[in-house]
Design a protein around this nucleic acid. Structure first.
Lengths: 208, 208
DNA sequence: GAGCCGCCATACGCCACCGTACGGGACGTC
DNA sequence: GACGTCCCGTACGGTGGCGTATGGCGGCTC
């Protein structure tokens, strides 16, 4: 297989410690994508801005426009990272043998994970963006099908399983949005646990 | 029902029909607030921008800065209209005698109303804005208490009633967001009706 | 019919960000 | 030690929005 060709060194971004301040030499495309995804988690799509990101990375636009064509391609790169994360998450879930336990763990994770864990809600907000929209739809569709398939394994017919997955998504997104914008309205402290149990029970009835 | 413009002549704001293009002489503060709220429904907080709104109203910034101090006070004025609308909605609901019918109508309305009918979701997105946040919280809290009180009348204890209202809000917001950003993922056509019935049943169990 | 006042037009400066042009340093290669 | 390549710094022009300053016009008042 053409071993003699030096070929590309593109994805060897392992390079020890290049994202840290002190010993940094040059920034890679992946450094930018990583920072962009992080910024997106914290401040939404608007936070993925070239100049602010450059400052945050301790460099200038010059670096950015060397690695990327424009801002949209940075967003694209960041979201591709997110797609990979999402796939990996589903693969990990698949490794849980017992379907009941799997469903429980997934649901619980969805409603207790830290705020910035998933950016689905953030992306839904900016779904009009030409780069965001398609990727978001693709990922979300895959997740829904995944969730529906899981639910079918619990014994529900296909249409009910899809409705169930869709409802879980809706609740996750809704809670994430409320937690972002008006967290005072959500139960706090120990009432929160009761609320989570309530939701789990509400979504639970696939097994009943 | 909402057919076009309620054509309220709020205060004694003389001059009939001043928002129409042809016979228009001058714009009022209310014209701006109305247009701002409308723009917010369509394009979010970002669409409430002075210069674009001015063009849309067939005027210039000069008019705006005569009536308003700055952009934030326009947002404030628009949201105060929204607050009034919300109060009126609850008052109208209160006029339905039968609590069961009342709950059914409200829930159904929440999940079948046209996209831009309520801007709660939009405002949640921009809840970090210093003007939006407080007003949103106030309105949403009042709605939750209202919904919880309604649910209590159906026989549920207070904490369960609040959870129920919160869940209804969460679903409403979640569906609104998905419908905005990825409507292809929601059931279409006649499947949509089945889905709405499914949700109504899921949220229904306060009476069971 | 002169003045005044409410309302708007226009021009301006400012800011944040995008994208480009171009120069220049570091570093390996010969 | 000259040279080319990789990567970045910097200056520039463009866009879209905010807020200000100031001029001007029409209608009302007397």
């Amino acid at each position: 297989m053409r071993n003699g060709v030096p070929s590309e060194r593109v994805q060897s971004d392992d390079e020890p410690e290049r994202s840290a301040r002190p010993g940094r030499r040059t920034l890679s495309r992946e450094d930018w994508a990583r920072a962009a995804l992080e910024a997106m988690r914290e401040g939404g799509l608007g936070a993925v801005a070239v100049e602010p990101l450059a400052e945050r990375l301790g460099t200038t636009k010059g670096s950015f426009y060397w690695h990327f064509k424009d801002r949209d391609s940075l967003i694209q790169a960041a979201l591709e990272r997110w797609v990979a994360e999402s796939e990996e998450l589903m693969a990990a879930a698949e490794r849980i043998a017992d379907p009941v336990e799997r469903g429980r763990r997934l649901t619980e994770y969805a409603f207790t994970a830290p705020s910035g864990a998933d950016i689905t809600t953030t992306l839904l907000i900016h779904a009009q963006h030409p780069v965001v929209g398609p990727i978001l739809e693709q990922v979300t569709r895959r997740r829904l099908e995944f969730g529906a398939r899981l639910t079918e394994e619990l014994g529900l017919p296909a249409d009910a399983a899809y409705r169930h997955a869709l409802t879980a998504l809706t609740m996750t997104v809704g809670i994430a949005l409320i937690r972002r914008g008006a967290p005072q309205l959500l139960p706090q402290g120990e009432e929160k646990d009761a609320y989570v149990r309530y939701i789990l029970e509400l979504l639970g009835p696939p097994m009943s």
